[in-house]
Design a protein around this nucleic acid. Structure first.
Lengths: 196, 196
DNA sequence: GAAATAAGTCAATATGGCTGACATAACGGG
DNA sequence: CCCGTTATGTCAGCCATATTGACTTATTTC
């Protein structure tokens, strides 16, 4: 088996005989057996499915989808980011973002404000209404995370964090950690967005 | 803030003043601050995005999408499951499954076989070709998981596993663990599917 | 034999992505 | 001041994945 006449994609490695830790003795710090790893893959699938399930249910009542959640979340967490920042974070096209963002703006969850140093930029801020919705969507997720970290036992916070960080593409890690460290994107503005 | 005139959904709790561990002293084993938990939420988003990124790239070359991957994965891991089992695992409708499954069958990645005890059932098996593709799709994910667990430090295997399990909806956990323990669904058949 | 079950199918709809092309406004360098 | 670049927005069309609802077929079970 394992012989499709298909070219290797991207950074794919050829399946170098058998060397996945199963029957090879001369291996220091043996990898987990494939079956175990597959279980982690499945667990991650189910975990993520349920993680997004709570907010999805709430969003439906507002006529929004998961895409709106993502936008609202990042705008709320990182008030004043530019459209371009959002595109980079979400890794989608501006046309995809456009529809979702427009709806959030039209319905009063997000406001735009021209940048003061560069007036081409549209800095995005949540309104009070937007902040409230973002918090409401996040609430069940935070409860879930909090309980899961507790259930995972002592040291879970550090271990899980390192695990998740390492799951991110290496090239992306700097970007991700800069996004997460409070002031992610060059917040050129001191703008607060406390208006509405 | 936090006052939308919107009804509470499902199991939503009213935002009971402030009691999220931020400024409340009389709390034993204080919850993590909200900001920390939000970082975990974001990390999970990025981690999952990249986790699915590798197979997605490969799938594109076959004209398949993530839905095909999920189906092929579970059929491969749990050879001989019924269509109904798959629907339950994936939590999608049979109409959604239909198209994807049909394509996988038409292109020779999966075969169906009527159940012997109940001939209404269509048991699903991967072909050699299907197994090969499933392995190829899983490979980068297993590498990623393996490295992430290593990076997470000692004890990560147990801790992360407990974390992920606890992230799954409590009602779903029995189902999930039965799915993962090798013979997930009542494999009424002894069928092997080693044909093709 | 009739009801219930497993699966498949037809049709319509929504969502969230994508590509390509183009418009507008503002910045910035020569 | 003009021009090229940049940031954003928008039109149009396409694709993938999911939904709901209604119905068929084969088979099992009572």
């Amino acid at each position: 088996m394992t012989d499709l006449n298909e070219p290797l994609i991207q950074g794919e490695k050829a399946p170098d005989a058998k060397r996945r830790g199963e029957g090879v003795p001369g291996r220091k710090r043996a990898n987990l057996p494939e079956a175990k790893l597959l279980e982690f893959a499945e667990l991650l699938f189910f975990a993520y499915r349920d993680f997004t399930g709570d907010p999805d249910a709430i969003l439906k009542h507002f006529g929004f989808g998961r895409a709106h959640h993502r936008v609202l979340h990042f705008v709320n967490r990182h008030s004043g980011l530019r459209v371009a920042d959002l595109l980079e974070i979400l890794t989608i096209t501006k046309q995809s973002l456009s529809r979702v963002l427009k709806q959030l703006i039209d319905k009063g969850y997000i406001v735009q404000q021209a940048g003061s140093s560069d007036r081409r930029e549209r800095l995005l801020f949540p309104t009070d209404k937007g902040r409230a919705l973002a918090e409401r969507l996040a609430a069940p997720q935070l409860v879930r995370l909090s309980e899961a970290l507790r259930a995972a036992g002592p040291g879970a916070e550090t271990t899980v964090r390192r695990f998740l960080e390492a799951m991110v593409n290496a090239e992306e890690r700097p970007k991700v950690s800069s996004i997460m460290s409070a002031s992610p994107v060059p917040l050129k503005e001191g703008g607060k967005g406390e208006d509405e």
